[in-house]
Simulated scan of single mutants.
Amino acid sequence: MGQMIDTGGVELWVERRGRGPDVLLISGLGDPVEAWQPQLDGLADRYRLTAFDNRGAGRTPLPEGPLTMPRMADDAAALLRTLQIPAAHVTGFSGGSFIAQELALRHPGLVRSLVLMSTTARPDSYFRAMTRFWEWMVERAPSERAMLEAFYLWIYTPRAHADGLVDRLIDETLAFEHPQSAEAFQRQLAAFSRHDTSDRLDGITAPTLVLSGELDLATPPRLGREVAESIPDAEFEVLPGEAHQPFQEVPEVFNARVEAFWRKVEAGD
């Protein structure tokens, strides 16, 4: 079970699971901790996993004022310090990978290693056009289901649409007791759209693995490759046949890959 934790600047909803080396999971746009369920279930016998709702997602309230990547990275840092975690393997997905980049730059001592899934250093013109569409789509779609059906076209593989996974995820999202408001979605989206670490990534010192889905429309592999090439000694890998959220679609593949990376980092400590 999760709990609300006061980090000194903001209260965050947090779920912790397992025992072993510490892992911090940082969610993307609109995702609550439940998005990481395959990792919370699949890795908890070997790692102590911490996942949390970002500002304006799930049970964490949306504060006054603009959302920014540095502020959200500071939230993650404050959470680690509040939980007395000296350093963690940090895994960030999509917008959460933007937060993870800032965390590694602003609080390097807290980051034992870095996994960036579906990432970019700076939104390109396609990304900006896509997010402008999402911004008005969340208000003007004829229903929440219709909005999710459209939104998930960018997120999941054609396979997931064909085999019923997307329908199941939509049903779960609609049944979730803490839905994200349109305002919170738009304000998170605006923060992620302003992300830019393109001239600072060479300052990341943590061992880094960058993962991209071959079929990812939102953050295609060329953007992930640019991130990996900018971070000293970073590893880069494309997951064949996968899209934006392989940690949900093929959790066994994702979990095995990140665990292999963490074990290599620990062996080198």
Rank of each mutant, 00 (worst) to 15 (best):
M1I: 05
G2R: 02
M4K: 06
D6P: 10
D6H: 06
G8K: 01
V10A: 15
R16C: 08
R17D: 13
G18N: 12
G20F: 05
P21T: 06
L24I: 01
L24N: 01
I26L: 11
S27F: 02
G30L: 09
E34Y: 01
E34F: 02
W36Q: 14
W36F: 15
L40Q: 05
R48N: 07
L49S: 04
R55E: 14
G58V: 09
L62W: 06
T68Q: 11
T68L: 05
P70Q: 09
R71M: 11
A76T: 06
L83G: 08
S94I: 03
G96M: 04
G96F: 01
L103N: 09
H107P: 01
L110F: 05
V111W: 12
R122N: 06
P123F: 06
R132D: 15
R132S: 11
F133Y: 08
M137G: 04
V138R: 13
P142T: 05
S143Q: 09
A150L: 13
F151N: 02
Y152R: 02
I155H: 00
Y156C: 02
R159Y: 02
D163L: 08
I170Q: 05
D171Q: 07
F176W: 14
P179H: 02
R187I: 09
Q188A: 09
S193V: 07
T197D: 07
T197C: 15
T197N: 13
S198I: 12
S198G: 03
D199S: 14
R200M: 04
R200F: 11
I204Q: 08
A206D: 07
P207E: 05
P207D: 13
T208N: 01
V210N: 01
D216L: 06
A218Q: 08
A218E: 02
P221L: 03
E226R: 15
E229P: 00
D233F: 04
E235A: 15
V238K: 00
Q248I: 14
V250Q: 10
A260L: 05
A260Y: 01
K264N: 08
V265R: 11
